[in-house]
Structures are given as structure tokens and as C-alpha cells.
Design a protein around this nucleic acid. Structure first.
Length: 240
RNA sequence: CGCCUAACUGCUU
């Protein structure tokens, strides 16, 4: 069962739904009953193909078979609503249709949906809503909101979220957080602030450095670009 | 030990 489900998950991620369904049939032929993970993976595959209504049907089908959804299953559906830009329905689903409490991933999915829809201000509010509902904001949540704010050119507010993140217990920025924030600062032309992050505690990766160096060059600040490159080398990055 | 969420890059284009 695990082997089949693992393969089905793989096909779903590769957007090879036909192959996934083939395997599902072969499972039944082998007298194996799909479990909640199998169903969740298939629903994820359907959602990624923008087939939310089929995913919802499958949810009904699994319940009919006395196979009960978990928070993973519900999160998959939530993400399906968000992909379809049906954010109000996503929210309604979370509040009314789930028979288990949402977790931090549930909120992260909705927050990402709001950000993608250019509604990052509401996303910021939802961080507090999550906290009220005992889902402590994590690094993914903060990074998502920071990215959303940056894309809407609200870079100052993004920096404020970063500061807030530092106050949060059990949550510290990682390389993705920094590359997100630094990309936002670069796009806003705030090169000096971007550079401060590098010189402080930030964990940069190659992509972050490359973007920063490139932005300095475009701003005709070759001297500083050069310094960053040296900095990069001295931190042990291999430069081609 | 198998399923859900974040930046960049690449693939699907």
C-alpha cells in the first residue's frame, strides 16, 4: 500500500494524473484499499490541474468509504480553492467544513492565497488571526507575508514584519527569508539596506549574493559590487 | 519510513 501510494504521489506531483489513476486501478486489482494518504495525494494532483470540483467529489467518495480525512486532506482542498482564486470559499471551508482544527499550514495556505491576489494587507491581519487560533506564526508564514508585501512595493512594512519575526519565539529567519527580503529591497532600489542584512547575521546563499551584486552593478556601483564578491569568496562560496 | 504551505533557478512554455 505504501509503495503504491508513494508512486501515486510521485505521479501526481509530476502532473501525470492518468498514470496515477492507472496505479489506483492496479491497486484494486491487487486487492489493496487506498487509504487517506492515497486519497489526499490524488486530491492534490487534481487540485494542481485546476480540478477542484473533482477533488471535492473524491472527498465525498472517501468519506462514503469510511476513510476519514485528516488536516492534510483539508489543507490540500484549501490550497485547491486558493489556486482557483476562490479565497472567500477557502476561508468558509476552513471555518465551516473542517472537522478538525486548522494548523499553521492551513493558515499559510490562505495567507499565500491572499498575497498572490495582491491582498497582502489582509494577509498581515491573518497572521494575528492564526495566533489567536493557537497557530503560532512560523518561518513560512512570515516569509510568505514578507514576499507578498515586497511584491506590492510595501517594502517598509515587509521590513517591519521581519523585525517582528525576530521577536517571535521559536521562529527565526532562514536563507529563503533573506533572499526574499533582499530581493524586495533590491527591486525597490534600497541597496544600502539590502547590504546591511548581508553584513549582519544573515545566512545568504549564492542566489542572494548574485542578485545583490547584479543590482549594485546596474546601479553603477561597481566598487561595492566588487566588495560583495570578495565578501562572498571569503565566506567560502565558490565563484565560477 | 508514504500525503499539504514560502523566495530564486530550471522544466512543463
Amino acid at each position: 500500500l505504501v509503495t503504491y501510494t508513494t508512486l501515486i504521489t510521485g505521479f501526481c506531483k509530476l502532473a501525470k494524473l492518468d498514470d496515477a489513476y492507472d496505479l489506483l486501478n492496479r491497486m484494486s486489482n491487487a486487492e489493496l484499499t487506498p487509504d487517506v494518504v492515497t486519497f489526499t495525494s490524488l486530491m492534490d494532483g487534481l487540485c494542481r490541474e485546476d480540478r477542484l470540483s473533482d477533488a471535492l467529489h473524491l472527498l465525498g467518495e472517501m468519506r462514503r468509504r469510511r476513510c476519514f480525512p485528516t488536516v492534510y486532506t483539508y489543507n490540500t482542498i484549501l490550497d485547491g480553492y486558493c489556486r482557483a482564486n476562490r479565497l472567500e470559499e477557502a476561508r468558509k471551508f476552513m471555518l465551516e467544513e473542517m472537522d478538525c482544527p486548522p494548523n499553521v499550514v492551513s493558515f499559510n495556505i490562505l495567507i499565500r492565497g491572499l498575497c498572490k491576489a495582491g491582498r497582502s494587507t489582509e494577509a498581515v491581519e491573518m497572521v494575528e488571526e492564526a495566533r489567536r487560533k493557537s497557530c503560532l506564526p512560523d518561518v513560512v508564514m512570515y516569509t510568505t507575508v514578507i514576499d507578498g508585501l515586497c511584491r506590492e512595493k510595501k517594502v517598509d512594512e515587509a521590513c517591519r514584519m521581519y523585525e517582528k519575526m525576530l521577536q517571535e519565539s521559536g521562529c527565526s529567519p532562514n536563507a529563503i527569508t533573506y533572499s526574499t527580503l533582499i530581493a524586495g529591497l533590491c527591486n525597490a532600489g534600497m541597496l544600502d539596506r539590502a547590504r546591511e542584512f548581508i553584513s549582519r547575521g544573515c545566512i545568504p546563499n549564492t542566489a542572494t549574493y548574485s542578485l545583490l551584486i547584479d543590482t549594485f552593478r546596474k546601479a553603477k556601483r561597481d566598487e561595492e559590487a566588487r566588495e560583495l564578491l570578495d565578501d562572498m569568496i571569503s565566506r567560502g562560496f565558490s565563484v565560477v
